[in-house]
Structures are given as C-alpha cells and as structure tokens.
C-alpha cells in the first residue's frame, strides 16, 4: 500500500532511495533534502505535499537531472530499475521528454516565447519519434484538442504570450504527454492559476493521465488539490518524509503531528462557521543547520526530549507510515475524535 511496501509485486516506475541533496552557499550547505525514499507505480497518482522549503520540488528535480551542477546529490534514483543518477547526459535527455516528462508551475518560463506552441509540441514529438513534420503537426493539434484547448486547429499557431495562463498550462500538459510518457511530474501545476482555471487544469491532468496511462507525481502545497486528485500522499517537512500513505487514510487519521497540524490550520469550506483555526507555532527550521532530532520537534505539541535527540525513521502505523516518535498517539487521537 505505502511507498516503501515491498509486498507490491510490480516494479515501480520510479524509485527514489535515501535521496540527499545539498546546495553549497557562502553561509554553508543548505540541506534541501535529507534522506527521502519514495516509489511511484504505474497508473497511480502520488502527491508530494509540503510547504515552501520542505524539499518537495528538489527531490523531483534531482530525479529529472535538473538540479544545478553545484548541487550535491547522493542516494539512488531508479527509473524501471535503471539508475538515473549514473546516466550519461544523452541517456538522460532521451529519458526526459519521452519516458518522464514534466509540467511546471509557470508555463511562461518553460515555453519558448518565440515559437508557436504547436511547433514546440511538434518539435518534441520529432525528437523522440520518427515522423515527418506534417504528422507531427497533426499530432500537436490532436494533443491540444485532448487537453481542451478551444479551436486547437487555430491555436496551434499561437505564441505563448497570446494564450491565457490556463491555456498555456494546457499547452504545457499537451507537450508533456506528446511522447506518451510512463511518468508525468507536475510541479505546483495549479498554484499560479485562479480557482476556476485550477479546476480545469486538474481535470486536464487527470484526462491526460488516463489517455497515456502514465503515473503522475504532483507536487503541491495545497492539500485540497491532493484530496481531489491523489491516490497516495507523501508529506514532506524540512527535507524529510513526515508521513506517507493512501490519501484517504492520511487525511482521515493523520499519524504525524505535522500532517494533523496542516489539516487543522486550513480554513475549510465545509467547516462549521466559527471554527477556530489551529496554527502551527513557529516557523520551519533553517536548512543550513537543521535541528539534531526531529525537525518538527521545536513546533510540535507532542515533542518530548527524545524528539530533539533522535531522528525518527519512517515506520508503519496503521495503514500508513509515519516518521514520528509519537505517531501512534497521533493516529489514535484521530480515531477518538
């Protein structure tokens, strides 16, 4: 069921083990990711959730080989059993865009501003598939139609700046699925968009995933988006996994105080009026010098001396896995309520 469950028979599409990423800065190394492991299986939607600075994007960037050269990466990342970190640039290029593809938060920066969107999609198709330019173009129209771009036949010749934010994000998704990837990674795909457009894009992502049968990893800070689309969730805090499990279970009975804290601090549309929010005290730690024990301990209502000494490892609690010394208490409390 969970990310590290070895009982699952199939091999994961992507498997990340003990990933650590550090960025050297003049003030010392920023330890962005400090030992994270996760798998994503065929056809499933995994959400990696966390706040800014939790390392959720970095761990995925590492998998795509997209980190700056200065980043220090250790651990292993395997795509269908092949080590991504050991791949040559050429193999990595072949992997990106055909087997794994990505949708970014800001499509404006990832689309070429001086090239029509259709031409960009067609180019991506021709890099990885042996087709002539006419076929590639009609494929581009087909893809734009699939992602619900109105008048795809005309829009194919539009430049990115002629499209609205939502349409650009659709074009990005069309480009990402052009080569029928096994894995689609979406990094905060809806964050910059209005609510009504956000709903459209989530729908399109689901449609795109169904059309290609790929797995989807969605990185987001919005737990509402997770609830809408994800099968499984990995909650990250300060560069480590806090909790992982099936989304239904984690939302219903969180087994980590951080997850519980996040859920308690969001105003909900369905909450009874007058509900007092429960903020998490303090701020996330500096990743230049993260605290020695559990990184969440300084903000945690359940913290005991043990928490500030020993880093809790991810361990099974109920149907989930939690990296908390007091995970059982948290899990059982949720049941009592």
């Amino acid at each position: 069921m969970t990310g590290l469950d070895s009982s699952r028979a199939e091999t994961p599409v992507l498997s990340v083990r003990d990933l650590e990423v550090a960025f050297p800065t003049p003030d010392g190394d920023v330890q962005a990711v400090r030992g994270v492991s996760w798998d994503v299986y065929e056809g499933e939607v995994l959400a990696i959730a966390g706040e800014s600075g939790s390392g959720k994007s970095v761990s995925v960037m590492a998998a795509m080989g997209l980190l700056p050269a200065t980043a220090q990466v250790s651990g292993s990342i395997a795509y269908r059993g092949r080590d991504v970190l050991a791949m040559s640039d050429k193999d990595l290029e072949r992997l990106r865009g055909s087997s794994i593809s990505m949708v970014f938060q800001d499509p404006m920066t990832s689309l070429n501003p001086v090239m029509a969107v259709g031409a960009q999609i067609a180019e991506g198709v021709r890099i990885h598939q042996r087709v002539n330019s006419r076929t590639a173009r009609s494929k581009a129209v087909e893809l734009l139609d699939l992602v619900g771009l109105p008048n795809a036949g005309q829009r194919v010749d539009s430049y990115p700046h002629e499209l609205s934010g939502g349409m650009r994000q659709r074009a990005m998704i069309a480009m990402a699925i052009a080569n029928d990837p096994d894995l689609l990674i979406a990094d905060e795909p809806t964050t910059a968009l209005d609510v009504t457009i956000q709903a459209q894009v989530i729908d399109v992502l689901e449609r795109a995933r169904e059309a290609t049968g790929s797995a989807l990893v969605i990185i987001t800070h919005d737990l509402g988006v997770v609830a809408r689309i994800a099968h499984r969730i990995l909650v990250m805090y300060a560069g480590r996994a806090a909790e992982t499990g099936m989304a239904d279970g984690v939302f219903e009975r969180p087994s980590h105080p951080y997850t519980a804290g996040l859920l308690g601090s969001i105003p909900r549309l369905d909450a009874p009026k007058g509900t007092r929010l429960m903020p998490i005290d303090g701020a996330p730690p500096s990743m230049l010098a993260p605290p020695p024990g559990c990184a969440f301990a300084p903000r945690c209502p359940r913290a005991t001396p043990l928490c500030s000494q020993e880093i809790p490892e991810l361990r099974p609690i109920g149907n989930q896995q939690s990296a908390c010394h007091h995970g059982e208490d948290q899990y059982n409390e949720a049941e009592d309520v």
Partner: peptide, 20 residues
C-alpha cells in the same frame, strides 16, 4: 464554490462539480 478543493478525499470524490 464547486471549484474550491476541500482537503477531504472522500468528500471530494462525492462532490458535484461545475467546471467552467
């Protein structure tokens, strides 16, 4: 209102949605 996701997967699956 229907576009705002609610952080509750079970509720989300049941909700009626109007996508503009």
């Amino acid at each position: 209102l229907s576009a705002v996701p609610i952080p509750d997967p079970k509720l989300e699956k049941r909700r009626r949605r109007i996508v503009l």
